[in-house]
Nucleic acid binder design. Structure first.
Lengths: 354, 354
DNA sequence: TTGTATGCGTTATCAC
DNA sequence: GTGATAACGCATACAA
């Protein structure tokens, strides 16, 4: 059903119908009512092709994400965004990536200023520097620029959409897997490894979830926990890992709540005979982690579909801006359990439906 | 870059450019070459909106799938197809579902005849009646109708695309999970439950994978296996399950390679005190299975994203017919490991990117 | 308050 | 061989 046909049914011109559809006024109450009734009755939906053709709009979406080296976590969401950009290019969606240094607030603010100056049609924001990100979301609200949060949520920021994971539950899942592997007893080391100095709510929630699972289990008194925090690049990193892992033979399992379990795995791997029975659970399918999963040093990795997160982030704007559809407020991606046996179909197998 | 602009660059009319693009001939070699060079250089891609508007084509895709009751496996792929149909409706893709009885070859052939008569633009085929499906694929080839296979593959049928899972690896994964749960020793019952009499290559491959994993493990001599086959609806089904599970206290684990582990779980659940330590691994997130996963009777379910399979099946045709893009030959979906701890984000969380 | 005309980029038809 | 042109459905500027 076209506007023309509706116009004929209502005995008016298509200009009048158009005015009603776009609420441009200058239509008598009476005819407006008649037209609305017809539109309702025939369940009119505009032809997306004709609409896209005449509007011919370009939508510029800016993504503000941490800079990364090859093989690091943020490569994956960015890959997803770029893949979406390729698919959505033909619908006028254009992606512009801005990177900032997680350890330099100034670099974040510079990127934020550039972004605000360019007045994009939408923003994808990875709020790893929480406080500064909050300030940016307020400015975006003022400027009436919709934004999507990826990875972690800023409370009360009212994004168009949040896309991420349930970090607490991810920690519980890690605990379940590790406890099963160590046969519900022994000493566990939680080793939090980061490459920046920011407060990281995701890691914190994973650790809390991990502890929660054990605390509420019926084998709680068979398990002992200790927790360490390590900064990548610090001078005594190797020593810190050695200390965190604990004495040979006494530690049954290791949990690393970040994507950086490969540092611990490398250490364990060098002393394979000493730690032959140590079980390890970590997060994220980055190449270094995959290597040790394949080797058997790491037993389980928990994935959170970062490429999909990136893809969804951009396609939310497609839905919102191009199709005018409502988008889901919160998208929590599944927590995938990856082992040697199902690894193959998680890596390099990022399919996009369309 | 538009055709008009290319025409200007080549000093010809847009009609000539169009003839070159669509290989309609009647263009001199010389001008053709010049135009192709320009197209190459400016990386021309047609405007999808203008194209869609003028072509205004409707594509009818027929899906031939087993009929099902609510809560059965095939509900999930169909749900995915319908969801894709909603999204792709605006691009002229229309889905027509044809159902057949898995136990009645005639019903399959009736549906196949209806399908061939209607001459659809594409076919989605679930080849659960293998031999008849093979015949249909040959007729589709003759009629030049592209088809996508879903769930299981027909050798040498040359589909546009196959969408499914690696059933052998799924079996290996199940073995890994079950063996870990039973602490690498004990007696395992493989119980194959079906609601039809067809040869099912998927189940067979899962069983082979399961055995393969154990046979190649270093704890092989600690494990004993036995295998049973049960038909749903047979008079002695309860007795058969009881016999298959084995004597109380002697069986450590149960593996059901189909989606029907809930029948066994229901039996075990009734005698919870006798089988308190029995571990169970099955397939597919259907409601009945989820119930026993939540209760703890089932320890792991392996998912294969059936909704995504359905979604991909239809969107393959969108890519092929509407966008004219190449589509992936084989899409193997990840084998998801689902436990109580990550169930929440797998159920009712079927997100569609776009 | 209402109707008409123009153009978006592509396809396909027709005249030259 | 080639160029001109109508049509697709919608949005909008402008005329009435």
């Amino acid at each position: 059903m076209t506007i023309k046909e509706i116009a004929k049914l209502a005995n008016v011109s298509l200009g009048t119908v158009d005015r009603v559809i776009h609420k441009r006024g200058k239509v008598s109450k009476q005819t407006e009512k008649k037209i609305l009734e017809i539109i309702e009755k025939v369940n009119y939906t505009p032809n997306i092709y004709a609409r896209g053709l005449v509007l011919n709009k370009q939508y510029r979406i800016y993504a503000l994400v941490p800079q990364f080296s090859q093989g690091q976590y943020w490569e994956m969401p960015v890959k997803g965004m770029q893949s979406a950009a390729t698919n959505l290019h033909q619908f006028g969606i254009k992606l512009e990536l801005l990177y900032f240094d997680q350890n330099a607030i100034a670099s974040f603010n510079n990127a934020a200023d550039e972004l605000l100056k360019d007045e994009p049609d939408g923003v994808i924001l990875a709020p790893v520097i929480n406080f500064e990100a909050l300030k940016l979301t307020k400015k975006l609200k003022e400027a009436n620029i919709p934004f999507v949060l990826i990875d972690s949520l800023i409370q009360n920021s009212e994004p168009l959409s949040f896309i991420g994971q349930d970090a607490f539950q991810s920690g519980r899942l890690a605990a379940k897997l590790l406890c099963t592997e160590i046969n519900l007893k022994g000493s566990i080391s939680i080793i939090s490894i980061k490459n920046n100095e920011n407060y990281n709510s995701t890691l914190q929630q994973r650790i809390e979830g991990f502890k929660d699972y054990i605390t509420n289990s019926d084998f709680m008194d068979q398990i002992s926990l200790n927790e360490s925090h390590i900064q990548v690049g610090s001078l005594d990193m190797q020593k810190a890992i050695e200390k965190a892992v604990g004495l040979k033979g006494t530690t049954a399992g290791v949990f690393v709540p970040s994507s950086m379990i490969h540092y611990v795995a490398a250490f364990i791997d060098q002393r394979a005979e000493e730690f032959s029975n140590l079980k390890m659970v970590g997060n994220d399918l980055i190449p270094n982690n995959i290597k040790y999963l394949e080797k058997g040093t790491i037993n389980y990795l928990i994935g959170q579909r970062p490429e999909n997160q990136g893809y969804f982030a951009l396609s939310s704007f497609y839905k919102h801006l191009v199709l005018g559809q409502a988008v889901a407020e919160d998208i929590y991606l599944p927590l995938d359990i990856i082992t040697q046996e199902n690894l193959k179909y998680y890596r390099n197998n990022f399919q996009y439906n369309f």
